[in-house]
Structure formats: C-alpha cells, structure tokens
Design a protein around this nucleic acid. Sequence first.
DNA 1: ATTTCATATGAATGATTGTTCATATGTTCA
DNA 2: TGAACATATGAACAATCATTCATATGAAAT
Lengths: 110, 110
Amino acid sequence: MPHNHDEALKHVKSEMPADELLQDLGDLFKVFGDTTRIKIMYALHEDELCVCAIAELIGMTQSAVSHQLKALKNANLVASRREGKTIYYRLSDEHVKSIIAQGFEHITEN
Amino acid sequence: MPHNHDEALKHVKSEMPADELLQDLGDLFKVFGDTTRIKIMYALHEDELCVCAIAELIGMTQSAVSHQLKALKNANLVASRREGKTIYYRLSDEHVKSIIAQGFEHITEN
DNA sequence: ATTTCATATGAATGATTGTTCATATGTTCA
DNA sequence: TGAACATATGAACAATCATTCATATGAAAT
C-alpha cells in the first residue's frame, strides 16, 4: 500500500491560502515573466517615460510596448498620466522594485 | 516631426542591465507565474515534503507535480534529498519566500 | 529475481500568449 | 476642419507551455 502523509499534511493544509489567492499570485508573477515587460519596468525604475521613449529604448514597436503596458497596468504595476498627446508611464509602487531586486539577487547569487 | 527623447534616455540607457541578465530575470519570474508551482512552493513554505504528499495536497497527478518540480529545480528554487524510495523537496533559499511575500503584499494591498 | 512503491521522463495535445499589421482614438496646431 | 503626432486596440499567427498518458528508472522488501 502507498504510504500515508496525513500527519505531514495536517498542518500545511491549514496554512494554505485560498485557491483564488494563489491563482492571483500566479497571475501577478506571470506579468513579471516576460523579458519585454521586465525591460519596461527596469526602464521606469528611476523615472517616468513616454511610450515612444520606452519603445526606442528597448527596441520594440510602439504597438508591442503599448500592449505590454496594458498588461502591466492591469496588474497595477504601472500607472500613467497624460500631458497633451503624450502619455507618461511610471512604476505604481515599491513592490515592483523589491520583487525585481529579490529576483536579481537570486539569479546573481547562484 | 516626432519628438525627441535623447535626454530622457541618456541616463536610463546607461543603467540598463545587460540583455542576457534581463532575460534570465524574466525566465526566473516565469517559473513563479503558474498556479501549480505557486502551490508547490507554498506547500514547502514551512517544511519539506515528498512528491506524493505534494500531489495529494494540491490535487494534481504525481506526473504533473514531478514535471513542475523539475522546472522549480532548474531555477534553483527547490532542492531535494533522497531517503530510500522517497524524495523530499524543500525550498532552496530565502529568496523564494521573500519574492512570494512581496507578491502577496502587492495583491492584497490593491 | 521479481514484485511493489516512489519518482522521472518523453511525446502529444490543447490552451495561453507575445508580436505584427492595420486601423482606431484622442490631442494639438495651423 | 484637417493634418500630424502619440497612443491604443482587435484580429491573426507563431511560439511557448502545462497537463495527460504511457512507460522508464530506481530502491526496498519478500
């Protein structure tokens, strides 16, 4: 007969967050899981930039950048403000920076 | 004529990490960007567990869990040790916990 | 040795996703 | 009002990826 893990799981089970929350967490990290979006976030690390500046910096089309900015905005990772024809994007909070910083540490330490 | 962002980009450009590093960073977060793997990491948050215990806990097949554990191991997010037939997995370092914690904060604060 | 249990792995499939292209929206200026 | 610029968006296509199924490896026990 297969072995039993009721004991081992009893505690862990009670500490598991709700499925919906774990799903949201996965969805959040999915947004970080793309080089283009990482580049965009890095570009906004110090200061806001307009869409076409971002596009020029990372060497992608305006359309591609715009699509990705939308994904970042949906995840509340960037915010924007309009100034005439131009729209400036910035990081929306400090979590972005600390998540990236932790990831950076991880890959540079191994 | 389109507007110019040489000034705005001059500083940012010099601060951008190498492309390869940004790629690695995206690849790392890609591993976090899946509910099954998030569940696995959460399950290992406090203590090591064997593969079949994880499978039972999160309600997935042994095969699926094994595949995902491999992805986690490739990214150095989990480590394993063998004890007879059983293989126990654990989180490999503190970055895992802090990255998840930061993500958690982000989604619960908005 | 062979059976049983624990885990790993390869191939296949269905679903998700990033980019491109064409075009739409919104703003300014003449 | 119309032209030019900045950005957004929808559809389509290619590529990536998670799960399943079947099977392989590895270890213990009888």
